[in-house]
Structure formats: structure tokens, C-alpha cells
């Protein structure tokens, strides 16, 4: 009512455009990385697991643009295959987590009351431990490996995604068209699937893309600790762990896999933050 009358329109438009650019840049880089990962067997110049004795710790060259590692394996090829594993594990983790979190959040937000309390309390238990510690505990029980790592990451994100879905369901459920549908005698299932879910998904998608960035980092961290993807399968985290001993002689063994992670994480972050600004201005997905 008082001081701020007409907010000048320009900064808003500028941030809108900036967020579109961010989404676009993130999507393009991610697309390229995904293509590299999918077609790694075709694109990779060498076999990632072939040991070549006279190529041990070879510096970057035309033949081996990223150099070769302590066993003479081509780093570029290993980065390509490692990216494949890392993207696969992190995306699978986020997809599994979202697939479970969406119905849980939907039920909790739509029915409220006891259903809500039960679902929320059980999910809260997961938050008792710090995220990485929980993943490690999970792996301690089931043993190391890509699949277990993906499951562990999925479990960590479950409460976060379910909570976002719950709060956006709460918002949508109060809308007139949902009340209207109920008043016209539509059943709960019909209303949930037909009206509530499609409208409540936006913030969850935003949150899932933000979490994908963390999932990628987490997968790399677990593999770095020797708890994720197991050798000889190349993984970005595992490569960083292998190369530590030869860091001073052959820094390329550490630099390129790490840079690949940074670029991938950055593009997920750009995409996620851009989507958040575009779809979720009120910030339901915290």
C-alpha cells in the first residue's frame, strides 16, 4: 500500500532471460555429456580397460588427448566410460527416489491427518543421519557396488522429494478445480491422478534436477572411497582415487576426470536453478 508502488519491470525481465539462458546452457551441455556417455563404446578412441605397458603415465598427446594412467590405459576413453557409469547411477538413483517419493508425498499432502503423520514420521527417520553417512551405512550393510550406491542415494533423497511433493500437493489441493472435481463426485483416485498430481509435480521436477547434481557428486565420492563402482569398471570417482599416488608425476590422471564431474554438476545446477526460477518462483522446492 505504501512506498513501493511500481516495481520497475526491467530487472524481472532480465532475470527471466538469464534463467532461460541458464536452462538452455545447462540442457545443451548435459545433452552433449549424455551423448558422449551413451555412445562411449563408439566414440572412445581406445578400450578403457586395456593395459598398455609402454604407455604408463603417458602425457597428453594426439594419440591420448587426456594422457594415460598408471597402467597405460587411455584416460579419455576411461573418462567417457566413467561418465556413462556416473550418469547412469545418479540418474537411476534420482528416478527411483522420485518414483517412490511422488506417491508418498501425494498421499500425505492430499489426505493429511494420520496418513500424513505416519508417512512424514517414517521419512523423518532417514534424516536422523547425515546424508553421506547414511549412504555409507547402507553400503556397509549391503556391500559396495554401483547398484547399492544408487539405492543408497535414492534412500537419502526420498524424504526431501517426498516433502516437496507433499507441500506442493497441499497447495494444489486447496484449489477450486480440485474442490470442484470432488463436488462433482469424482473419486479420490481420479482426483489425485487426474487433477492433483499433474499440477503438483512442477516443484518436484525442479528439486529432482537440483538433486541430480548432488547425486553425481555423491556417486563420485562413494566410488572415490572404494564403496561405489568397483574396479576394473571405470568410474570418475574411482579414477580420482587411483590417480592419487601418481598425482605429482601425472596430474592429467586427476585433472580430467575431476573437470568432467565439475562440468556435469555445473550443468545440472544451471538447469535446476533455471527451472526453479521459471517454475517455482515462490520457492516451494527449497
Amino acid at each position: 500500500m505504501t512506498a513501493t508502488i511500481v516495481a520497475p519491470a526491467t530487472p524481472q525481465r532480465r532475470s527471466k532471460r538469464a534463467s532461460n539462458n541458464a536452462v538452455l546452457a545447462g540442457a545443451i551441455i548435459l545433452g552433449l555429456l549424455a551423448l558422449v556417455a551413451i555412445f562411449a563404446p563408439l566414440l572412445a578412441p581406445h578400450d578403457p580397460e586395456t593395459v598398455v605397458a609402454d604407455q604408463v603415465l603417458g602425457a597428453p598427446s594426439l594419440e591420448h588427448p587426456f594422457g594415460s594412467d598408471a597402467l597405460g590405459r587411455d584416460v579419455l576413453s576411461r573418462v567417457m566410460f566413467g561418465l556413462r557409469v556416473s550418469l547412469l547411477v545418479s540418474l537411476a538413483a534420482v528416478l527411483v527416489s522420485t518414483a517412490i517419493a511422488v506417491p508418498l508425498g501425494l498421499l500425505a499432502g492430499y489426505f493429511g491427518g494420520l496418513t500424513d503423520t505416519a508417512i512424514s514420521r517414517v521419512l523423518d527417520m532417514v534424516l536422523v543421519l547425515p546424508a553421506l553417512l547414511l549412504a555409507i551405512t547402507f553400503i556397509a550393510i549391503l556391500g559396495p557396488g554401483s547398484t547399492v550406491a544408487a539405492l543408497a542415494i535414492a534412500v537419502i533423497y526420498l524424504p526431501i522429494l517426498a516433502r516437496v511433493m507433499r507441500s506442493s500437493t497441499l497447495v494444489v489441493t486447496r484449489n477450486d478445480y480440485v474442490l470442484g472435481a470432488r463436488a462433482r463426485g469424482a473419486g479420490h483416485l481420479r482426483v489425485l491422478i487426474g487433477h492433483v498430481a499433474p499440477n503438483a509435480l512442477g516443484p518436484v521436477i525442479v528439486q529432482a534436477s537440483v538433486l541430480s547434481a548432488f547425486a553425481l557428486q555423491l556417486e563420485a565420492a562413494l566410488s572415490f572411497l572404494g564403496l561405489g563402482t568397483q574396479p576394473p569398471t571405470p568410474s570418475l570417482g574411482g579414477m580420482l582415487s587411483d590417480g592419487r599416488d601418481v598425482l605429482s608425476q601425472a596430474p592429467w590422471v586427476e585433472i580430467f576426470p575431476g573437470l568432467t564431474i565439475v562440468v556435469a554438476v555445473l550443468s545440472f545446477t544451471l538447469l535446476g536453478e533455471g527451472l526453479r526460477r521459471a517454475f517455482d518462483p515462490k520457492g516451494v522446492a527449497a
Binding site: 563420485a220 565420492a221 580420482l240 605429482s248 596430474p251 586427476e254 575431476g258 565439475v262 554438476v265
Partner: peptide, 15 residues
């Protein structure tokens, strides 16, 4: 700061 995994940052700092 948010995008660089801490263990890789650590390795680069060591380098």
C-alpha cells in the same frame, strides 16, 4: 563452490 566436489578440490590443492 557448490559444484566442485570437495575431494577433487582437495586433490587440486595438493597438486
Amino acid at each position: 563452490g557448490v559444484s566442485i566436489p570437495d575431494f577433487w578440490l582437495g586433490i587440486m590443492l595438493v597438486l
